[in-house]
């Protein structure tokens, strides 16, 4: 959860002393103890820990402002939020493909954005290796924001509000791309979703219904090897037998390894009920269809993940139970959390 640490008084004393004793324009709140997100004890250490990019409230707020601002696109029509809606766990509004600048249509389903600091790679093909450089792809892709970095930085530097906010946050007179990426990482790296019913059950604050519990058992038997708890992904790449001819070769496009044809990043199942349609191309409109695929329709292609070679076969009741469990992964607090709202 998000909090300003309760020792606010002492922090303010400290702050006033820093200003007084250094006689410099130290207007930011120190990053060490005033702003942090708490995660439940069963959540592992994140991969991204803001080591070179100390987290501050100013940085988080600036990142949020940028996330919701179409200034990042070439014609100021598209922001990050244009394809990533809080109400859908920061996936698009149930579109298979999203619209970018000039009404051009993207080629893969917009992923949900949450718990990104635990991801070791980004995008459906995992081509991006760092959360800070991840926004470079949508900003510069001609089907998305169609901008170039030099121009984005020029636009931001012409804007008095941004000049002031970057100065306050990062103590720089001139905005550069590194600080833009730092600010965005402070926002998107803190989209934390750990308040679902699943989490409440783990914290012994509530109990599953018997249907949900049966679903949880089925999940543990059939799904958890790839959609591993508690993040509900092992962040690997897998071919899940949806195609025998690949219109999109997925991971192969990054590695050029024929064994990677048709492999895509295993997405987290958290908030899965909110993020339809499913798969890299949004081909399945409902969870029922996804479950049906894994139960009955997996194609035995050469690259099929070994964990899917054995038939899963669920009956109608089991399918319903599994879906009931998947619904417990929806985090309503996350999608309603005001700190992520448009500023």
């Amino acid at each position: 959860m998000y909090r300003y640490v309760s020792m606010k008084g002492i922090v303010l004393l400290f702050l006033s002393l820093v200003i007084f004793s250094c006689n410099k324009d130290e207007t930011t709140i120190p990053s060490d103890n005033t702003f942090k997100f708490e995660t439940p004890s069963y959540i592992p250490k994140p991969i991204y820990e803001f080591t070179n990019n100390p987290l501050t409230q100013n940085g988080f707020e600036l990142g949020k402002l940028l996330f919701y601002d179409p200034i990042l696109s070439s014609d100021s029509s598209i922001s990050c939020a244009s394809c990533h809606f809080q109400s859908h766990a920061f996936a698009d509004q149930n579109l298979a493909f999203s619209k970018g600048v000039n009404n051009l249509i993207g080629k893969r389903n917009s992923p949900a954005l949450f718990n990104l600091s635990w991801n070791s790679s980004f995008m459906w093909d995992g081509g991006i290796n760092h959360i800070e450089t991840m926004p470079l792809a949508p900003i510069t892709n001609h089907l998305e924001m169609n901008e170039n970095m030099m121009h984005v930085i020029e636009k931001l530097n012409r804007n008095k509000t941004y000049r002031e906010k970057f100065k306050t946050t990062f103590k720089i007179d001139s905005i550069n791309d590194q600080k833009l990426f730092y600010a965005l990482a402070q926002f998107i790296g803190n989209l934390q979703s750990f308040s679902s019913k699943y989490d409440k059950v783990r914290q012994v604050k509530t109990l599953y219904s018997s249907e949900e519990n049966n679903g949880y058992m089925l999940f543990k038997k059939h799904c958890q090897q790839c959609h591993t708890e508690p993040l509900f992904s092992n962040f690997e790449f897998a071919n899940n037998g949806i195609d025998s001819i690949y219109a999109d070769k997925g991971r192969y496009l990054i590695t050029l390894d024929p064994n990677d044809e048709g492999k895509f990043k295993i997405p987290s199942l958290r908030n899965i009920a909110l993020t339809f349609p499913y798969m890299h191309d949004g081909r399945f409109s409902t969870l029922e269809k996804v479950i049906e695929h894994y139960s009955e329709n997996i194609l035995q292609v050469p690259n099929l993940d070994t964990r899917l070679r054995k038939k899963i076969q669920l009956n109608a009741k089991e399918k319903q139970e599994l879906q009931a469990f998947l619904n417990t992964l929806t985090d309503f607090e996350f999608i309603q959390n005001k700190i992520y709202n448009k500023p």
Binding site: M123, E132, Y182
Partner: peptide
């Protein structure tokens, strides 16, 4: 992650994808 100077993405010398 994000770098500065010669390594800045504004030089168009970093693959986005």
């Amino acid at each position: 992650g994000a770098q500065t100077g010669a390594l800045s993405t504004t030089n168009n010398m970093f693959w986005s994808w």
